[in-house]
């Protein structure tokens, strides 16, 4: 479903650059992406979301290729990808319900569809009672739940999560992580970039891909869980 083939991405100061990296995420898979800051985790997410294009190599997502995708198709592709950020990125002047509705409105959904879907999504993330609250009236964990509800608005094939628990305390982290597990159990693939090694260690059954200097240095899915250090 998602495939990076020999992808190199150059940046002027090299932070976050990728160096001939190949990676595949299958349908319905859950995968941790770890590594130090600047190792290239966010770059991989941006390439999959087609915010960035590779300097060389190819990124393929759900039938679209980075080599020839058109601007309009990028918008359509993004409806198949949910994105969750560490800093939430909610519109501060809109309620939780309006933030979720916004994702549907801007893709031309009808009001009746939007109303029923927003209610369902907020219930799914346990925030039905706080639908009319502004982001500033919600805790960090609750804001992240709104972001997840927004990311699920288009029933995506995959959720890209960029340090989604980075700003949360341990209890909120566990709650959010459980939510990702249940979303994954329903069939949505998840690529979960994180610094939280404790979270990774507590979930050994989940595939782990570790990056350093723009290369994969460990992928638990590779044969016998062997180390695939390339340097």
């Amino acid at each position: 479903m998602i495939r990076l083939d020999n992808v190199t991405k150059d940046y002027p100061r090299n932070a976050g650059a990728l160096n001939g990296l190949s990676f595949e995420l299958r349908k319905g898979e859950f995968c941790f992406l770890t590594g130090h800051s600047g190792a290239g985790k966010s770059t991989i997410l941006k390439l999959i979301h087609m915010v960035e294009r590779p300097t060389s190599g190819e990124v393929r997502v759900s039938g679209y290729s980075s080599t020839n995708i058109r601007s309009r198709d990028i918008a359509l592709l993004r409806r198949k990808i949910g994105y969750v950020f560490q800093d939430f990125r909610l519109l501060q002047d809109r309620t939780a319900a309006e933030n979720v509705a916004f994702a549907l409105e801007v893709t031309g959904a009808r009001q009746t569809v939007i109303r029923s879907k927003v209610g369902r999504l907020l219930s799914h993330v346990g925030l039905a009672a706080k639908a009319e609250k502004l982001p500033m009236e919600l805790s960090g964990g609750e804001q992240q739940r709104v972001v997840i509800a927004r990311a699920l608005a288009h029933d995506p094939l995959v959720l890209l999560a960029d340090e989604p628990t980075g700003n949360l305390d341990e209890r909120a982290t566990d709650g959010i992580f459980d939510m990702f597990r249940s979303i994954n159990a329903a069939g949505t693939a998840i690529l979960f970039a994180t610094h939280n090694l404790d979270l990774v260690r507590r979930n050994p059954s989940i595939r782990l891909v570790e990056l350093a200097h723009g290369e994969i240095i460990h992928d638990s899915a590779r044969e016998h869980g062997a180390d695939v250090r390339t340097s």
Partner: peptide, 17 residues
């Protein structure tokens, strides 16, 4: 700006924006 960034994030076309 914030709205536009989120619109792009969730798949709004440029024409729509």
């Amino acid at each position: 700006k914030d709205e536009i960034v989120i619109m792009r994030l969730v798949g709004a076309t440029d024409a729509f924006i």
